[in-house]
Structure formats: C-alpha cells, structure tokens
C-alpha cells in the first residue's frame, strides 16, 4: 500500500466529521470513495492531502505512520491532489499553466521552448488530444482541463493522485473522457483516489470501493466482492429510496 488509513477520525469542535474510516491505495489501482453530500468525503481527502490533521487513527505512507504537516509535505511524498476548481488560470496558455510554479529554467530565463515541448509530450503520453498548447486554458472543456491537471500531477512525479469529484460537473461524454485518463494514470503505475457520488462513474474504473455515510464507513469492498447493482443500491440507500418512492406516489 502506498497510502493507507486505519480507523482514522476527525472532528471539528463538537461535530464528528469522520469516524473510524479505513482504506488503502495500491500502486496501479483505483480506490473510489463514494458518498452523498456531507458523508465525509472531503474531510477524508483533506486529511490525505495534508490540509487537515487527523485526530484519531493512523495515516500510513509506504507502510510507515506519518503526520502530514501540510499540502506541500503531502506533495513531497508524492501525494498530489487535483481539486474541483482545478487551480488553473483560465487566461493563461496550457503550457504556462502546466509549469506554473515549477518553470524549467535555462540560465536566468524561463525555458519556454522546453516547457512547450514537454507539455505537449506529456499530454500526448496521457492520450490527451489538445490541439494547441498555446491556447488559453479557459478555452478548454471541463474534461480537458481535468485531464491537463492530471497530466501535470503525473509529470511532477505524483505516486498517488487524489481526484476530487472530477466528473461531477461534466456531461456524460466528458465524464467518459476523464475516466479514460484516470485509467491511463492507473496504467502508468499511479495509485488513484477517485472521489465521486456517482456509482456509474466509479464502478467501471475502480478496483476498491469505500462507501461513506454521515462520517462513517459502510465498508471497503474489492471489485470482486460487490456488484454494480449492490454498489448503486448502497449508495442510494435502499430504504430511503423506497420511503421516498412511497411518499411521492400519487394517491
């Protein structure tokens, strides 16, 4: 396991945001974190990304227990997070965004030729078809932006890639594009943590599934142990759905 939590928990004041959650991320595998709004998904990934410190349980990187001091610490250990708002600058070109904050140098200058070439190559290696790396990121579709962010994390040596709801704002086709890049990152040997509330996005690409509900774990399943139908049912909450259907039924 590259990254693992054992009975991890976090509270904010008197609110228990996360209780006793255990999960693991293997190299070359995708761990999906599923849950409705308020289930504790974002608290969990913020702990993994070094934004929050956990109160209880243990966080392990490469089998050794650690306390991450901040996002930079996480990044230095190879844990990269692609946030929903993407941290990209819309008016800047793809290649300028790609190397933002880590520009290659040549003497005193920003080596723009290398930056352009490497950005193009890295995107192509991920199978991302960007027509022109000079175009502003703002002109890319949502799926393309996610893909560029993923390619950037891969290029800068991420071993674990945490993707915060990368498909939630996308249409069916765009979501498919992003799922393909998640698979591509997995095939390149990265461990991927894929946060979503859509079991139909999670099931095709996931190897393990962690289900969260109101801050607690409903269990972590390997793909062999759970069917798509069961996953969907667990996610939706069968009892609640039945009650809702009953309530909404016409007299």
């Amino acid at each position: 396991m590259i990254l693992e939590t054992r009975g991890i928990g976090k509270s904010f004041g008197s609110v228990l945001a996360l209780r006793e959650v255990s999960m693991g991320v293997e190299a070359g595998q995708v761990t999906c974190v599923l849950g409705d709004n308020g289930a504790g998904k974002s608290t969990l990934i913020k702990i993994l990304a070094g934004v929050h410190r956990h109160d209880s349980g243990a966080l392990l990187v490469d089998g050794a227990e650690v306390r991450l001091s901040g996002p930079r610490d996480a990044l230095e250990r190879g844990i990269a997070t692609v946030h929903q708002d993407l941290a990209m600058i819309p008016l800047m070109s793809v290649w300028r965004n790609f190397f933002l904050g880590a520009e290659p140098r040549r003497g005193l200058a920003f080596d723009v030729r290398t930056a352009r070439r490497v950005a193009r190559e890295e995107l192509r290696a991920m199978g991302i078809d960007i027509r022109d790396v000079d175009q502003p990121v703002g002109t890319l579709s949502g799926g393309e932006r996610q893909s560029v962010a993923i390619a950037r994390a891969v290029h800068f040596g991420a071993r674990v890639l945490i993707l915060d709801e990368p498909t939630s704002a996308l249409g069916v086709k765009q979501a498919g594009v992003v799922l393909r890049y998640i698979a591509r990152a997995r095939d390149r040997g990265l461990g991927v943590v894929f946060i979503t509330h859509n079991p139909h996005h999670a099931y095709p690409v996931g190897d393990r599934f962690l289900l969260l509900k109101r801050g607690t774990s409903l269990g972590e399943y390997a793909k062999a142990d759970i069917s798509r139908e069961r996953l969907t049912a667990l996610m939706a909450g069968e009892a609640e759905l039945r009650a809702l259907a009953h309530e909404l039924e016409r007299e």
Partner: peptide, 24 residues
C-alpha cells in the same frame, strides 16, 4: 514572456488563489 517571474505575474493577476496553490 521569457522569465519565471513573468509567468507568476500573469498567474497572480489571473487567479491569485490558484497561483498560490501552485507554489507561486
């Protein structure tokens, strides 16, 4: 156009929060 600070200037003006998150 050709220096690292130049890239940072565009970034802090475009979206300061995102720029900071990228280590600018």
């Amino acid at each position: 156009m050709r220096s690292r600070p130049g890239n940072w200037i565009f970034a802090v003006g475009g979206d300061e929060r995102a720029a900071r998150a990228a280590g600018v």
